[in-house]
Nucleic acid binder design. Structure first.
Length: 362
DNA sequence: TCTGGGGTCCTCTAGCCG
DNA sequence: TCTGCGGCTAGAGGACCC
């Protein structure tokens, strides 16, 4: 979906159409208590000012003081997301969900041509949601994703076997899925600037640079190879909840209170979805942006809020809190489906809401 | 000076055990 | 009894993606 969050916002704020619009964080960075946030999506009008996803909202404001800023509102985006995914599933059951605004669809067995299928799907999504999307068609997921980036917004791109050298190899190496900021920087240090440059290096040499597993994937990808199937069903591996504070927290009790609240939030989500976990972990990010994690595993699976909170506090005890903290998070992993977990959890949630004893370090 | 929140997967290390 | 080694797991951190 094109500039998804921003496009959904424009459906209910048509007065902002044509204006630079930035979606991110809790809203307007001009308000001090909303200032800590990053850009989730920006309209093409805002991108013209150099605003990009992941950029601090304050930086976006600096680049475009006249921009409009709106908070991220998942409750508005989720139903639209469900609608376009439903249309895709009706097109082919070989559907892979890849997050709120993109998905893969295996259309190789359909009777119509790829172009006809894509055109029909775009039209159906457009009339159902009022939004545009960009479609990439190719022999595998990697190339389909890269194709979808070639003609944005509102485009259709078809990549065929012979198009690799002409259309993919000239692209910057960063445009290859799996090459993020770190890998991109390392490759650039060795004068590997384009996908074609990467395709030409020795796999052995690349393995020395970035590790064998990553190298095998990237070298294949640069040469257009991708054997990954379209995955139609997936069980979650972990659930987490984290929060960045409006102001850094130095007080242990305050930190424990925030962590306890996140445990309650997370336990409620696990209960609602019927999962229990075997490992609890916490995450702290200090004022200097250094992140630290601590994990604790149980013998069995639990979704009990008191157990989660006790474990989270045990983890917290193991951290040297010598600096103020800007973010705290809790995560439950090694998930299993838990039949009937909801009932037990309801009771423990009720008891957790009252006065809490904080069982943590000195 | 600034840097979200939700995830996944991988690597490395240390400890345990046969 | 000591040592080495491979397999396994837990824990910590890193990279990446939407």
């Amino acid at each position: 979906m094109d500039a998804f969050f921003a496009s959904v916002e424009l459906l209910r704020r048509p007065d902002l159409r044509g204006e630079p619009l930035v979606i991110g964080g809790r809203g307007d960075p001009r308000e001090a208590h909303h200032a800590r946030g990053v850009v989730a999506t920006a309209t093409y009008e805002a991108r013209a000012f150099g605003i990009r996803s992941g950029m601090p909202l304050r930086e976006a404001l600096r680049r475009c003081p006249q921009a409009h800023f709106l908070p991220v509102d998942f409750s508005a985006y989720t139903p639209v997301s469900a609608r376009f995914k439903q249309l895709m599933r009706e097109c082919s059951p070989l559907f892979e969900d890849r997050g709120i605004d993109e998905a893969y669809l295996d259309i190789s067995a359909l009777p119509s041509s790829s172009l006809e299928t894509a055109t029909g799907l775009k039209r159906a999504i457009g009339s159902a949601t009022g939004l545009s999307c960009s479609v990439g068609i190719a022999p595998n997921k990697l190339l389909a994703k890269m194709a979808s980036e070639l003609d944005k917004p509102d485009g259709i791109s078809i990549l065929e076997a012979g198009d690799l050298e002409r259309r993919i190899w000239p692209l910057p190496v960063r445009s290859l899925p799996g090459v993020g900021p770190r890998t991109g920087e390392r490759l650039h240090q060795h004068s590997i600037a384009t996908v074609g440059d990467l395709a030409a290096v020795s796999p052995t040499w690349l393995a020395h640079l970035i590790g064998s597993s990553h190298a095998a994937w990237l070298h294949g990808a640069a040469n257009g190879r991708d054997e990954r199937p379209v995955v139609t069903e997936r069980e979650p591996r972990s659930r987490s909840a984290e929060r960045t504070f409006a102001e850094d927290v130095a007080d242990r009790r305050e930190l424990a209170r925030r962590l306890g609240a996140l445990c309650i939030e997370l336990a409620a989500e696990l209960a609602a979805e019927g999962y229990a976990g075997r490992t609890v972990g916490i995450k702290l990010r200090f004022a200097d942006f250094v992140t630290c994690t601590r994990d604790l595993s149980f013998a069995g699976w639990t979704a009990d809020v008191r157990t989660l909170r006790r474990a989270a506090f045990e983890c917290l005890k193991r951290v040297d809190l010598d600096r103020p903290v800007r973010l705290v998070g809790v995560r439950v992993s090694d998930l299993r489906r838990s039949a009937g977990a909801g009932d037990a959890l309801g009771e423990s949630l009720a008891s957790a809401g009252g006065n809490q004893e904080f069982d943590f370090g000195p």
